[in-house]
Design a protein around this nucleic acid. Structure first.
Lengths: 134, 134
DNA sequence: GCCTTGCTGATAATGATTGTCAAAACCATT
DNA sequence: AATGGTTTTGACAATCATTATCAGCAAGGC
């Protein structure tokens, strides 16, 4: 049976407190800095569990780290992520869903999963970048 | 100045000989098994170079490895990848291109890049899986 | 052929993630 | 509240992919 431990709550809480995607490492140090003595391995396990139960989303950053995020819905959806500040917008993509399924079917593929994420600079970071470039 | 070494040729050749995405590690052992004494570090360097010059495409597998592939065109395109045998089909996705750009613009994002890849089981591997499940 | 300088490769280093296992915590039951 | 069977935890070691190091080699211009 799944048990309810304060560590799991702490991880979920730390995820909720964050607007964007966070690495497991960052989450661990964030928890430590609040005085929590939680172990690194536990953070990884909790994140893996949350991802499985659908309470969190995970994706690979372009640098190869695994990033996690608490998502507001359990529905399948995608993300628009600011590569500078990590701000994340959840986006609906019915068109992409059906497109992915069609493309897979046309080529004889089954069990199609897809990775669809858009990275960019959010409005604030765009302005900042323009200012600092000057 | 960039020099022309047989090692670089070997890596490019090994990439060309392969239909799908390969990890750097796999490429290195493939080369070794053909008797080439090429070093692992060199494979990584050659792949990084090829990716920069646009002679190869790279992406992150869901497991977090970096995969490489020699692509037939320099145009921007996406991939349909068999997660079992690595077979890769290049797919055009104008619809997705414009969708990604629109979504980014609607949310004030600039410099939008996107990661769009479809993983599945190709026809052959689907049949195999069905057979072995029996 | 010689020389300069970039390239190679064995190995160490790094950094993220996962495995190990005894001790502690959880929860249903008494 | 005490007990007991299991799960979870956490410190640490192990693993895996990748990158840095650095002395020796080789490519290309002369």
């Amino acid at each position: 049976m799944k048990r309810n431990t304060w560590q799991r709550e702490a991880v979920r809480g730390a995820l909720d407190a964050n607007d964007g995607f966070v690495s497991a490492q960052a989450l661990h140090s964030a928890l430590h800095s609040t005085g929590s003595p939680i172990g690194l391995a536990t953070v990884y396990r909790a994140l893996a569990d949350l991802a499985v139960t659908g309470d969190a989303d995970s994706l690979q950053s372009p640098e190869g780290e695994s990033l996690y995020r608490a998502c507001s819905t359990n529905d399948h959806h995608h993300h628009l992520i600011c590569r500078n500040c990590g701000l994340t917008v959840e986006i609906e993509a019915d068109a992409v869903e059906t497109w992915a399924k069609d493309v897979a079917a046309q080529n004889g593929f089954t069990q199609a999963a897809h990775v669809v994420d858009v990275f960019g600079l959010c409005a604030a970071c765009t302005a900042q970048a323009a200012a600092s470039a000057r």
